Every structure is written in C-alpha cells, then in structure tokens.
Computed example of a mutant assay.
Amino acid sequence: MNTPSIVTSEARAPQQLRGKARFEKILAEAELVLLAKGISGFSIPELAERLGYTRTSIYHFFPTPYAVLNELSRRYLVKLEERVEEAAQQLGQLTWQQMVFRITEVVADFHNSNPAGRMLILGAMASDESSRALELTIEHLGRQVEVLMASANVVLPASNPNARALTVELGTACLRLSYHFHGVITPEYQRESARAMISYLNNFASPEALTLP
C-alpha cells in the first residue's frame, strides 16, 4: 500500500442512490484488488484505474486506502457474527463440547468461503477502526459462547479475566496460525481451535471427559 504509515480512516457513506451504487462498485472492485495484490499492495490509484474513475471520486467516499479496507473488514465481521448466531440457534441437544466444535466448523467454513474476509480478519487488520470492530466482534461472539455454556448449565465468571473473550481469542489464534501457515483453515487447525476452547472452558464445567466428535 503506497502510504508511509497507517492512517486511521472511515468510509463516508453516501446518501443518494447514485452514490450508493458507486460506493458498492468501488468496494466490489476493491475486493478483487485485495485478492490480487494483498493488503500491502492495495492502492487507490490502481483501484481508480481498474474502475475508470478519477481518484478524487474514490477519495470522496474513502479518504485513504485504509477506509476501503476498514469498510470491507467491518462487513465481513458482521457477516461472521450473523453466521455464528444462526448456527448457534440450530445446535439442538448437543453437549457443550459438541456445540463448541460445531461453532469452530462454522467459523472455519466462513473463512474458507470468504478469502478476502479471511485475509482481513486473520491477516493484518487495516487500522485502528477495523481493530476496534474486531474487538467488538470478539465481545459479541463471546456472548454467544456465554449463552451456549449457560444452556449446558456452565456459568462463566463475570469478573476479570474476561472468560468469554479469552475463549474466542484462543480459538481464533489457532485459525490465524492455519491461515499464516497454509493460507486456509485446515481441518487439523479447526480441530485444535475447538480443543483449545474446550480445554479452557472445561475449567468452569463440572468434571467430565473432554471428548470431540
């Protein structure tokens, strides 16, 4: 990316229909540039050239390249939250260990199905804004973990450390390593993600065998 340092910035959402259409077209093309060049190779000049737009017309919505990547990151994080919430509602009468394992399958599948989102979430975050979005997502996913555990009569402590956020971070760390080593989430690392979370959560559960599907 052709900037000397990370500049925090947010997208300027358009109000008019014509502006909204251009906004979405810029994001769609930006995702293609991201997949082709990676985060370090992403630039607004190339984006403008590919779209046939002036740079100014892109800067109108996205003051910096990070504003584009931040918006893409935010959207993928929202989609990830929605996917996990949807899956959590379909877990039925599984044990809490099976629930955790199933959720890691869902998250791994999401990342493997969304290469741009995988790059932004598990690779290098674009700026402070996207990092804050990730923190919020961790908190939201942590609440899902808390609800799932409560449904199995396992209560997570409310005091520090934040057990639900730690659970999500432990699982995500395994997925991040898989991305960096292999470019995707492998079944082996997805399984280790589940094992890491289950091992930690087992500290708050009644003594029982730690088993995976």
Rank of each mutant, 00 (worst) to 15 (best):
L91K: 13
S5C: 01
N70M: 06
K37G: 03
M125W: 05
N112K: 09
R50Y: 12
S151V: 03
T167N: 06
R191S: 10
E49Y: 12
Q90W: 01
F23T: 06
I39K: 09
H60A: 08
A88N: 11
R50S: 12
A124R: 15
Q97F: 07
R191G: 01
Y200E: 08
T211Q: 14
L32S: 10
R118F: 06
I6W: 04
E146S: 15
L51W: 13
A133H: 08
C174Y: 09
R102Y: 11
S73N: 09
E188W: 09
S127R: 02
A36W: 05
R195K: 08
I44K: 02
P45H: 08
H60N: 12
G142C: 10
S131Y: 06
A124T: 13
L77Y: 06
M125L: 14
A116I: 06
G92K: 01
E71L: 00
R55K: 15
K20T: 11
R75H: 01
R22I: 10
A126P: 12
A88M: 09
P213S: 12
R195Y: 01
G92T: 03
G123S: 10
S178N: 04
Q16C: 08
A165N: 15
H140P: 00
N2D: 11
V168L: 08
P14Y: 03
T172S: 10
T172E: 11
V33E: 12
S199T: 15
R176I: 02
A194M: 02
L47A: 06
L122I: 04
L212N: 02
I58S: 06
E208K: 14
N114T: 09
L141P: 01
E86S: 13
Y53A: 09
E86A: 15
F23W: 10
A11H: 00
G52I: 11
L80T: 07
N160S: 13
I198Q: 14
L210A: 06
E192T: 11
L136T: 01
E71N: 07
N70D: 10
L77C: 08
G41P: 10
V78A: 00
G52K: 13
G142Q: 04
R83C: 07
E192R: 14
P187F: 03
R143I: 06
Q90T: 13
R22Q: 14
V155C: 08
S199C: 03
P45M: 07
L177E: 15
H180W: 12
Q16F: 07
T167Q: 04
I44M: 06
Q89E: 15
K37F: 04
A163N: 06
V106M: 05
P65F: 00
E31A: 02
P161I: 11
T56F: 02
V33H: 09
L47S: 01
E81S: 11
L47V: 05
Q190D: 04
N160R: 14
N70A: 07
W96T: 08
S131M: 04
L47M: 05
A28M: 01
E192H: 14
P14S: 05
T186Q: 10
S57R: 12
R132V: 02
A196L: 10
P157W: 13
H111M: 11
I138S: 10
L136H: 08
N114V: 07
L177Q: 15
T137S: 14
